[in-house]
Design a protein around this nucleic acid. Structure first.
Length: 444
RNA sequence: GCAGCAGUAGCUCAGUUGGUUAGAGCACUAGUUUGUGGAACUAGGGGUCGGUGGUUCGAAUCCACCCUGCUGUACCA
């Protein structure tokens, strides 16, 4: 090694990226297997699109900027900008536009995939995360929207949630559209600010939202956010409209009727859900968890939704002249995993190998024979993967939470009977090789 | 991005009004019967006190700038 101080490579992870460990991954696998089962039952087809897309295909144009990296990760490849996908909907629209003539209409597909966002991460929010999406493309029928809600509900219950522990909130972009007509609001940026303000009711309450609809709001840290500058009369009208308990737009009335036909009642009308501002055109919905979620310090945090979706009738049209109204749902799987792992009764089985201890390298063939015997019987097992004293081998077995170790040293070999030690109870006994599999099965 | 707070061992933190070789618990390593884990005991390794510059006889401690993190806020297709 050179004497000069070399700057060492960093062990830290990039902001917003995390290592995920087995326990979490097993919960995720469990959820994914439930999703796949339900998707097959509902007749969706499985699709995978690449992580990268051309930036302009997924809605990032910005020709005047050096890098199109507002919110997305991008790089230049042979003079063309590529971006890591930030959701699965934009790639779907691209896929449908590209393969429009070949695919069935309507087109139903589901997809699981990692997406990336170049934004500031928050509690439970990362810059890389796994999404699950299911969409209907090419139908205006609200039966599709209804079915998505019924379906996600079935997935959640398969994952062990009870009816009271989650709820589907529904609303429609038509409500705000009509509201804007009513108060004669035409300025696009004012509309956008209004929507953004209304989206914050759950967090700021009506008082905070009214400040944002008016001149603006100063937050706890003293930072000031400019408001939409609506008149106080218009703010009143909006508040009245938003406090109505029953939907009045035709799409929601129709949707609820279909819910009835499905016998589906675990939804609530909530005009304050806004969702993505740019592309939704009609019915929107959000999946909320109703139980407390804690952070790693044990504090209850405002967890918010684990996903949502709605109708986006114009997204595919952006690529050409195909008329493909669509509706879809996306679920943030990592958030769902995080929430499920907090439920006490929720456990997934982690299978750990029986450890065969090594006394003498010359007896390796005997250890391999035992290992083969166990593995043939479907028992997870390993020969201690190192060279160490028995004490170290025991410590290793304990550390990996192995259920049992097999001791096959000189004494046992003479008798032809390995010693089986149960690591939960600490008890051990000699066992005939023929009986080994059965005895281990009693332990695990 | 804006704002507030913070940064001392792998982790959680202590470090008195600036004063010698910077500490604890947990974790780690090695031992306490060279064939036995989870407990206990003994010993040990590990820190340019986030970085750079400044003030001072002397800085983890004071000042400036930078970096990083947390929280709020904004954006979030």
């Amino acid at each position: 090694m050179t004497k000069e101080k070399k700057s060492k490579p960093s062990k830290e992870l990039p902001l917003g990226f995390v290592d995920r460990q087995e326990k979490e991954l097993l919960v995720r696998d469990f959820i994914i297997s439930n999703i796949k089962e339900v998707m097959i039952k509902y007749g969706f087809q499985y699709l995978e699109t690449p992580s990268f897309e051309y930036s302009d295909s997924i809605g990032k144009f910005l020709p005047d900027k050096d890098r199109p990296d507002e919110g997305v990760f991008s790089f230049k490849d042979e003079n063309k900008w590529l971006s890591l996908r930030y959701d699965l909907t934009a790639p779907l629209a691209r896929y449908v536009a590209k393969n429009f003539l070949e695919i069935p209409k309507p087109f139903k597909r589901y997809q699981l995939g990692t997406v990336w966002r170049n934004e500031k991460p928050g509690p439970g929010r990362f810059r890389e995360f796994l999404q699950f999406d299911a969409d209907f493309v090419g139908t205006k029928n609200l039966q599709a929207d209804a079915e998505l809600c019924v379906m996600i509900s079935e997935i959640l219950e398969k994952c062990g949630l009870r009816r009271l522990e989650y709820s589907i909130k529904i609303s429609s972009r038509k409500i705000t559209e009509e509201l804007f007509k009513k108060i004669n609001l035409n300025d696009d940026s004012q509309k956008l600010t209004t929507l953004r303000a209304l989206d914050k009711i759950d967090r700021l309450g009506w008082n905070g939202v009214k400040e944002l609809l008016g001149e603006g709001r100063r937050d706890k840290s003293g930072d000031f956010t400019k408001g939409a500058n609506l008149t106080s009369r218009n703010i009143e009208i909006i508040e009245d409209e938003f406090k109505k308990k029953k939907p009045e737009t035709q799409d929601l009335i129709d949707l609820i009727k279909i819910f009835k036909d499905y016998n589906f009642s675990n939804f609530e009308f909530d005009p304050t859900i806004i969702r993505g501002l740019e592309y939704y055109t009609g019915v929107i919905f959000e999946v909320d968890l109703k139980f407390d979620v804690k952070n790693n310090k044990g504090q209850v945090i405002q967890f918010g939704s684990i996903g949502g979706g709605g109708r986006y009738d114009n997204l595919v049209n952006n690529f050409g002249n195909y008329d493909a109204p669509a509706t879809g749902i996306s679920i943030g799987l990592d958030r769902l995993v995080f929430a499920l792992m907090q439920k006490k009764e929720f456990k997934v089985k982690q299978t750990k190998p029986v450890v065969i201890c090594v006394f003498d390298k010359n007896s390796m063939k005997k250890y391999i024979n035992l290992q083969t015997l166990l593995r043939k019987a479907g028992i997870s097992s390993e020969i201690y993967p190192g060279e160490n004293k028995l004490k170290k081998q025991m410590e290793y077995a304990n550390k990996i939470k192995s259920p049992a170790v097999i001791l096959f040293g000189d004494d046992e070999i003479k008798l032809g009977k390995p010693t089986l030690r149960n690591l939960f109870s600490g008890k051990e006994k000699p066992v005939e090789i023929k009986e080994l599999v059965n005895e281990i099965k009693k332990i695990i």
